Every structure is written in structure tokens, then in C-alpha cells.
Simulated assay, not measured.
Amino acid sequence: MPAPARVPHCLTSLPLRGSSAVSGGLLTWTMLRGPTWVRLLPDVYLHRDAHRDDDHRMWCDAVALRLPPGAALAGRSAAWLLGVDLLARGDPVTVLLPNAARLRPHPRLSIVRSPLPGADRGEFAGLPVTTPLRTAFDLGRQGARAEALVAVDALLRRRVVELPALRAYAADRPGWPGTSLLREVLALAEPSSESPMETRLRLLLLDAGLGPLTAQHKMRHGGRFLARVDLAWPALRIAVEYDGDHHRERTQFRRDVARLNALRFAGWIVLRFTADDVLRHPDATVALVCQAVAERRTPAPPR
């Protein structure tokens, strides 16, 4: 049995252009066609030990090797590189191409054509990416309204962009596609929203006519801090919270019980909802909140 090919250590962790490695005398085409290497894209290879098919960073590195001049990683891929994960499993790499640029289609690519001035291009760890402002601008005017708001809220939450700067950036580009959606998203954006599901829950309640409401409201009773809740109508003493999976942990569950008892003692109605409530039973969720609001707005009968 032949001994496995010796591979230079510098080639074992990142994607590479096959033609460059061969012309540089580091590898041969025979080696690249063997079992040691995985072909990711045309002329782009990766050592099999570094291959992780669901590793978005790996795919970003690979795609960047094929980008024509003036192009950049964009959209959810740019957000991910900036530390904001909006990706679903297996999502392709989003690439923004100037109108004159060319790039061969591939299942791992989502190609968007749009003007891309140099001021809208930046760099992350050597990769060309859209700037934070351009990334937020693009995500806020694409796709469904809820997903656009989730993306903008997430970027604001991580302080990748600031809301006044994003509004000014959008105001300077009034004729771009999707700007009517972006204006609506910016009117609804909430930098203090702590999770995508919290954003979706807030939007569900606002669309039901249950606004205005306060996000991340700090509750006090008798001058003492009690809790911070996701959403609230302070005047009515009604709080709404989204419970993610971490609330199922025993320690967190005990804290939640103590916190809920303290809020009830202070006269608050606290309604808690899960992803299933928001995504699969939105009408029932809205009905429960409406009922609580109606109860608080109805004067108590005289005794």
C-alpha cells in the first residue's frame, strides 16, 4: 500500500486555490484528485481533516478565493462574520456582486447583484465583506418583514451598528429596492431586544394593536429593584416574556419561580410564552394578552 502523501502543514487548515498550489510546486493535480483533498468549489480545495460541511466560516473562506474584484461577502454571511448569527443550518454564503462582475453559480452560493461602492466594502480577517452599515441596510430591506426586523434588531443589539447612523444611511439612499420595507423596519426597530424570538413576539403584539409597549422594562416595588422583563405595559402592570430553552434548566427554573412570585406580589400580571406559542399559535397568544389588557382596563366593581 502506498504511503499517504506528505502535505505541507500550511495547507492543512484553510481552503486553497488548486491552480496556485500546483503552480507553486506545493501539490500536484494527482494529489488534489486523491482522497486527501475535498473539492469545495471549482479550483478550491480543502484538506479532508479540516472539512466540516456545516462550517459557514469554511465556506466563506472558500468563496472568498473565487470572488471577482469589487465583490464582497454580504447579508447573513457578513452578519455572521460580524458576530451576529442569523443563519439556518446549511445556508449558502451570500455574495454581493457589482453588476458587471461575473461568478459561476453554485449551490453553496447566494448571489445578489447590486451597486457596491468602495465605501461599502470592508475586511474581516482578510475576507472582503460589506461594512456593518451596508450589511444592516441590505438585511433590513430584504425578505419577509419579520425576518428583516429580526436581523436589524440583532445587529443593533450587538452594537454592530447604531440606529441613528442606520437611519441616516438609509435616508441617503431613498430609491434603492426595498427601502419602503426598511423604513417600516426602522420605525419598529428595538436595540434592547435580546433575542430573535423576543423580536417576533413583540411584532406579533404590535401587529395586533397592542402597542405601545416597553422593551426590557425594569420593575421596582417599594424602591427596590424586582426584575427586568422582556415586554411590558407599565401603567397596566402587565409583563410578557419569551421563555427560551434555557428556562428549562433546574437552576434557572427555580430562579424564575421566585421572580414570578415577587412580581405577582407586587401586583403584576406576567404572561410567559414559548416559541411554539409565537410561531404555531399566534392567535391564542394574542388572545391571552388581550384578555389581560382588558381586565386591567376594566374598572373594578365597587364593594
Rank of each mutant, 00 (worst) to 15 (best):
P2C: 08
A5S: 14
V7G: 01
A21G: 08
V22N: 07
G25A: 11
T30M: 11
R33K: 05
P35A: 09
R39L: 12
D43K: 06
A50W: 08
H51S: 05
R52G: 07
R57T: 08
D61I: 00
V63R: 04
A64T: 09
A64N: 04
L67Q: 03
P69G: 11
L73S: 07
A74M: 08
R76D: 01
L82D: 07
L87S: 06
L87F: 14
G90L: 14
V95E: 01
A100F: 13
L103P: 10
L127I: 08
P128C: 11
T131Y: 08
A136T: 00
R141C: 11
L149M: 09
V150R: 03
A151M: 03
A154T: 01
L155I: 01
L156T: 00
R158Y: 13
R159Y: 05
D172Y: 10
G175P: 12
G178S: 14
G178L: 14
S180C: 09
R183D: 03
L188M: 14
S195G: 06
M197W: 08
E198I: 10
T199Y: 04
L201E: 01
L210I: 03
A215R: 04
A215S: 15
G222V: 11
F225N: 05
D230A: 12
W233M: 09
A235I: 03
A239N: 06
D243Y: 00
H246I: 06
E249G: 10
R259S: 09
N261L: 14
V270W: 12
F273E: 07
T274M: 01
T285Y: 12
C290S: 13
A294F: 07
E295Y: 10
E295K: 00
A300I: 13
P302V: 14
